[in-house]
Design a protein around this nucleic acid. Structure first.
Length: 217
DNA sequence: ACATTAAGTGATT
DNA sequence: AATCACTTAATGT
């Protein structure tokens, strides 16, 4: 085993310990490769073909739905230990992505080429469970985001967004502008500014230029 | 000092 | 909750 592989194994162990059987871990290390992404980079865009699926090791990724040029909406965040089972289906069927994935905070992931994924599904129980679990979890998050749109006012949606973001980044100090928040929630900056001021006065957040501290999440 | 970008606000729909 | 129009504040060069 070379140094590179040892490093990868260590990183993989951190978040996927006890999840994958050792033979599968060996396989993952054999065919997967590590890649790093900086904040704002696009992992996959709508309409693109996927050739690999990511196992996220660190950082966070936001999954965005976009309506023909312009209006967009953040559906949910992915963090360490996550994969996107949607991407998995895209891979198997050779279909194009219906989402955009953008790096939310600097991320590392192991990328697995599609051809092995199918084969592992039949071969390793742990892999099967992992994929099904992931699919389930994504579905729940999708429902949550539908609930948000249908039943929550902007104030609640903003609070959930900030809370989710603080959670996946594992810090309460977020570097973000009102405009960026507005884009992610598909609302206007003015509205975000006013709601944030309310939340600020209520003591739920502390906000300054390009920065929001989330006090409750 | 000046230009640019981010945020705050009143009025209107 | 959205939009407009404008002001004020913070930051970069």
């Amino acid at each position: 085993m070379n140094a590179q592989e040892a490093l990868l194994r260590e990183k993989l162990d951190d978040y996927y310990t006890g999840i994958f059987e050792s033979e599968l871990v060996d396989q993952i290390l054999k065919v997967g490769f590590l890649d790093k992404y900086k904040q704002g980079e696009i992992l996959i865009d709508i309409g693109e073909n996927m050739t690999h699926i990511p196992l996220i090791l660190s950082g966070s990724v936001k999954i965005i739905r976009q309506e023909k040029e312009g209006d967009e909406l953040v559906l949910y965040f992915l963090e360490k230990g996550d994969t996107c089972a949607i991407s998995f289906i895209n891979c198997i069927n050779r279909k194009q992505s219906i989402f955009r994935a953008v790096v939310d905070s600097n991320a590392e992931a192991i990328f697995l080429p599609v051809e092995h994924i199918d084969e592992w599904l039949a071969k390793y129980q742990s892999w099967r469970h992992f994929i099904i679990d992931s699919y389930h979890f994504r579905l729940i998050e999708m429902v949550e985001s539908i609930d948000g749109l249908a039943f929550m006012n902007m104030n609640q949606r903003l609070m959930k967004y900030l809370g989710d973001k603080a959670k996946v980044q594992n810090k309460q100090d977020l570097e973000i502008t009102h405009q960026e928040i507005a884009d992610d929630l598909n609302t206007s900056r003015v509205v975000v500014t006013r709601l944030l001021k309310q939340l600020h006065n209520d003591g739920k957040v502390y906000s300054t230029r390009s920065r929001v501290r989330v006090n409750e999440f």
